[in-house]
Each structure stands twice: as C-alpha cells, then as structure tokens.
Amino acid sequence: MLSRVANSLYWLSRYLERAENLARMVEVQRYDSLDNNPSQTPEENDWKPLLYATCMEAIHAEASERSGDTDVGRFITFSEANSDSIRQCVAQARENARMVRDQISEEFWRELNRFHLFVASDKAIQLWSERPESFYRKVIEYCMLLTGLVNTTIPHDEGWHFIQTGKALERADKTTRVLDMLAYQGEPQRSRLASALRSCSAFSAFKAEYRGNFSLENAVSFLLFSPSFPRSVRFCMRQLDHHLHAISGSSPGSFTNEGERLTGSSLAQLNFSSIGNVLQVGYHSYIDSLQEQFNQIGQQLFETYILLPLEIRSLRQNEPPHWQQHQQQQ
C-alpha cells in the first residue's frame, strides 16, 4: 500500500473518532450546564475544563476576542478558526477520504460525503440552535454508521489495520482527556462523574462493575484500566498493539519498530498498574505522561511507514522534511 494512502486512512479515521468524541463531550457539557448556578458565568462554571482538556483554551480566547462570540459550544462545533472543530474534523476526514477513494467502499465514501455536506450546511446550524441534542446525536450516529461500514464493507487487510490504528490511538487519547477534565477540580460532584462516564458511553458499564459506587478513584480506574470496556485506555492500547502487529507481521510480544515497542511498553504499564500507581504521581502527571506516549507513538509510526530513511535523517537534522506530516496530533 502507498505510504501516503496509509497516512490518509490513518488520519481519516482519527478525525472521525475525534469528531465523535467531541460531539459526546460537548453534548454532555451542554446538558450539565442547564443545571447551572445562575450566579456564575458559563465560562467560569462548566466550559473551562472542556476547553482545557481539548487544548483549545488559547485559540478560543483569541477567536472570541476577535469575533466577540464567547459561545464555547459553537466554537467547538462549527468554528472555522478552530482547526479541530467538529465541522473541520469532518471536512478533514472527508478530504483524506477523497484522496483514497480507490481504497474505501462506495458506501463508506457516500455516507462520509453526506455527513460532510450535512455538517457544513446551514441546516446543521439551524438544527443545532433549535435542538442541539438532536444535532449531536446525528453526528454521533453518522460516526457509528461509518464505523460499521468500515467493518462490513472494507477488506480487513493492511489499509483496514491502519484505519483501526488511527481509531484506537485517537480514542485512547480522548478518554484521557475526559479524565483530565474530571480531575481538573479535585474531587468532583457525583453528577460530574456521571457526566464524564456518559460522555464515554461508560455509565451503565461502570455502574455494573462498581455497583453504583461513584468516586473519582473508581471512575479513573474504570476508564484507564478496564480490561473489557472498549473505550478504556487499556482496551484501546491492546487494540492498537494488535493492529500494529497485524501490519508488520511480527508476533505478539515482540517488536520490529519503535512505534510497536512504545505501544507494547504502554500496554504493559497499563496491564500491570492499579489506581495506587496513579495516585502516587497524581492524576494530572499520570495522564500527561500517557498523552506524551501517544504522541510519541504517532510520530514513530509516521517515521516507520510514511517517511523514507533518507527523510528521517534530514528530519533529525532539523531540516524541514520534504514530506510534511501535515495533519495535527492535538
């Protein structure tokens, strides 16, 4: 498979997963802010952790100063100034898909294109302002439909593994961001915990596992370490490990490139850690170090599969690479 094609499939999948997770996070946040304490401005009260967790604080401050629009929901959903808004993510996913139309099924392309046309339309803004929950549900539903189409209409070969790689890495990253948001202000209220879990679709699964015993420790433990919940960081890293081995053909437990090695190492850490290890270093540092590992893994995969050895050398010497990794890791 062409390196550029692998790169596009990987990013197409990351952007879709990003859009879905943003939609989940914003919708839960919006719903919570309905129970706002009226004495606080919305910015102080609820939206700040979300901006922090999505790394959009600075760019939002700048954009709202320029446009006078402080609405965080609109910023994360539609803003042109925000290269990671849901609208931009879908446009990016679609742009990547356009470059690899020969690799994806016609159904997948058509639905993704329809998704893009919808999110880019004025109709979408209208629906969003009238019935935001319907809008976000529609975004999430499109993403789920596309996930299904990837699994049922595209051959499960190398390209598919690159799609799954992007998805697993992005999902792991987004779950850590939800955790970051949660640990932002010390021990959160029960309702906040419930929201965070809901934004990962983890509410029922968590309740079943912990018999409704809501605490920050338990929620973090579940979202980091659950061996069976598909959005837990550990689960995602196991998936990532699996797909990377499928791509390289090397056997599980070994590694043939740096990306595989880092993934295996992260996975081992998650497999054999408990909440005690997290508390030792503190929530924030623990999550920070995970996110740093994810970035490293992304970079290493790019160097292994996309760049030529020649170009890596010039990259190391800080010359601008002939072939930019034009997409962004957040």
Binding site: M1, L2, S3, V5, D102, I247, Y305, L308
Partner: peptide
Amino acid sequence: GIEIVEGRDLIVLDSYVYMRTTQ
C-alpha cells in the same frame, strides 16, 4: 484497480521509477 499516485509518492533511483509503499 490501480494505484493513484502523486509526484511525492514516486521516487527515481538509478533510472528506475518506484512508488513508496508501507512495505
């Protein structure tokens, strides 16, 4: 059923043209 390539996907070495793939 053939690859669609851009200039950056191709490279010429010793007067032969190659495409750069993940393998």
